[in-house]
């Protein structure tokens, strides 16, 4: 099964792993890099192997990363993240918190999460205790919890995050406009992962709330998307859990949060 993906190693030649390390830059400025480079430069076979390796095209990040984020939320296990670095995305300065990946529901198909196209919404929920839950399928929200939003998008565009509750009402969560003035959608310069600026503090209103991220190719006014969301919510009899799509024609991904009183 020899192919560009594999290459029998001749005696004295560098291994596949070493070729991969060279290409990934793992050995930068290490003495071993110079040794391996010298061998490759003088070995036609290894040069050909290196060229074949570098020609391998992995799945594009733009399509893979949203899949990874959604798959990471499968309910197989709960992982406790101990890295403060992960919290830098939450603007948590140098504080050390435990971060929990809180899986709820099957990715992309369950009743709680609804995704159209290659977009994944992640909700970072910071509890008063300092623990941060990373929610991608659905989760629970208590009064005083602080939410921030992350997106893994397959393409650049303009992002808006909306909150649909059972009032029924729709609130623009991002972009955040402190003065109530109309704010433009948030520009995503490139495909990949982004943490949106600003945070939302949960109020004491109980019930379901669907948080929907929309990424459009063209800059679409948040107010226009809010109107679409309100129409969709009305069509669902005011039940956020029953809203499957806003019908925007853009990338959409949502998380269903259940707001309830904090356990005593």
């Amino acid at each position: 099964m020899t192919s560009p993906a594999s290459s029998p190693r001749a005696p004295g030649c560098v291994s596949d792993l070493e070729l991969d390390e060279l290409l990934a830059g793992d050995l930068a400025e290490q003495p071993r890099e110079a040794v391996l480079r010298a061998h490759v430069d003088g070995c036609a076979r290894c040069r050909a192997r290196l060229a074949a390796f570098s020609a391998v095209e992995p799945p594009p990040a733009a399509t893979m990363l949203p899949r990874v984020v959604r798959a990471a939320a499968t309910p197989r296990r709960v992982t406790r993240w101990r890295l403060a670095a992960a919290l830098m995305t939450l603007g948590a300065a140098a504080a050390l918190f435990a971060v929990r990946l809180r899986p709820r529901g099957e990715p992309g198909a369950g009743p709680e999460e609804r995704t159209k196209g290659s977009l994944a919404l992640v909700v970072f929920v910071k509890r008063p205790s300092g623990v941060v839950d990373i929610v991608t399928g659905g989760g629970t929200l208590h009064p005083g919890d602080e939410m921030r939003f992350g997106l893994a998008a397959a393409r650049p565009g303009y992002a808006v995050v909306l909150g649909l509750d059972a009032a029924p009402s729709v609130t623009v969560y991002a972009p955040y406009a402190a003065t109530g003035a109309a704010a433009p959608p948030i520009r995503l310069e490139r495909a990949g992962t982004t943490t949106l600026p600003g945070s939302i503090i949960a109020d004491a209103t109980a019930g379901a709330e669907r948080i929907v991220a929309v990424v459009c190719e063209a800059a679409t006014a948040p107010e226009a998307l809010r109107a679409r969301a309100l129409a969709a919510l009305t069509a669902a009899s005011g039940d956020p859990a029953r809203v499957s799509s806003l019908g925007t024609g853009c990338l959409e991904s949502s998380v269903l949060m259940r707001k309830e009183a904090r356990p005593r």
Binding site: L83, A85, T193
Partner: peptide, 8 residues
Amino acid sequence: MSGWHGLD
């Protein structure tokens, strides 16, 4: 590397 931004 952070779990989120670092993934890219």
